[in-house]
Amino acid sequence: MAEIKEKICDYLFNVSDSSALNLAKNIGLTKARDINAVLIDMERQGDVYRQGTTPPIWHLTDK
């Protein structure tokens, strides 16, 4: 899980924002549900936040 978090942070640092599906595909996974639990956990920790569009767009925080 730590490896996936690191990949998410690296990708969002370079791209600035992404949907869960696009993010999953760009870090080597196939479906948004493969990454949603990790994104929600990271959101609780304050590492990422989502804009409430459908589907949500994920961003890194300034943390």
Rank of each mutant, 00 (worst) to 15 (best):
M1S: 12
M1F: 14
M1Y: 07
A2L: 11
A2G: 13
A2E: 15
A2N: 13
A2K: 14
E3Y: 08
I4W: 02
I4S: 08
I4L: 14
I4D: 11
K5D: 07
K5F: 05
K5L: 03
K5V: 02
E6N: 06
E6V: 03
E6D: 04
K7F: 04
I8S: 08
I8F: 04
C9M: 13
D10M: 05
D10P: 01
D10C: 03
D10L: 03
Y11P: 10
Y11A: 11
L12E: 11
L12A: 05
L12H: 05
F13R: 15
F13M: 15
F13Q: 15
F13L: 15
N14C: 10
N14T: 14
N14Q: 13
N14I: 09
N14P: 02
N14D: 08
V15M: 10
V15C: 07
V15L: 03
S16I: 04
S16K: 15
S16G: 15
S16F: 01
D17Y: 14
S18A: 12
S18N: 03
A20L: 06
L21E: 15
L21Y: 11
L21I: 12
L21Q: 14
N22C: 06
N22L: 05
N22Y: 06
N22R: 02
N22E: 14
L23C: 05
L23K: 04
L23N: 00
L23M: 07
L23D: 08
A24N: 02
A24C: 10
A24K: 03
A24R: 03
K25H: 12
K25T: 08
K25G: 04
N26V: 13
N26W: 08
N26R: 10
I27M: 07
I27H: 03
G28Q: 03
G28D: 10
G28L: 00
L29M: 14
T30L: 08
T30D: 15
K31D: 15
K31I: 00
K31N: 14
A32I: 14
A32W: 08
R33G: 15
R33H: 14
R33M: 14
R33I: 15
D34Y: 02
D34I: 06
D34F: 01
D34K: 04
D34M: 07
D34L: 05
D34P: 04
I35N: 06
I35T: 09
I35Q: 07
N36K: 11
N36I: 05
N36Q: 10
A37D: 11
A37Q: 11
A37S: 12
V38C: 14
V38T: 11
V38A: 15
L39T: 05
L39I: 01
I40D: 11
I40P: 06
I40G: 09
I40L: 14
I40Q: 14
I40V: 12
D41W: 00
D41E: 15
D41K: 08
M42F: 00
M42I: 00
M42T: 02
E43G: 04
E43N: 02
E43S: 01
R44I: 09
R44W: 02
Q45E: 13
Q45V: 12
Q45M: 08
Q45C: 12
Q45T: 11
G46F: 00
G46N: 01
G46V: 03
D47I: 15
D47K: 13
D47C: 11
D47Y: 12
D47F: 10
V48Q: 01
V48Y: 01
Y49W: 12
Y49A: 15
Y49M: 13
R50H: 08
R50D: 01
R50F: 03
R50C: 12
Q51I: 14
Q51L: 11
Q51S: 15
Q51D: 15
G52L: 01
G52S: 06
T53I: 01
T54D: 15
T54H: 13
P55C: 07
P56H: 00
P56A: 10
W58R: 09
W58N: 08
H59L: 03
H59Y: 05
L60H: 03
L60M: 08
L60P: 03
L60V: 04
T61A: 11
T61Q: 04
T61G: 06
T61L: 01
T61F: 01
T61D: 08
D62R: 10
D62T: 11
D62G: 10
D62V: 07
D62F: 00
K63C: 09
K63Q: 01
K63A: 12
K63W: 09
K63M: 03
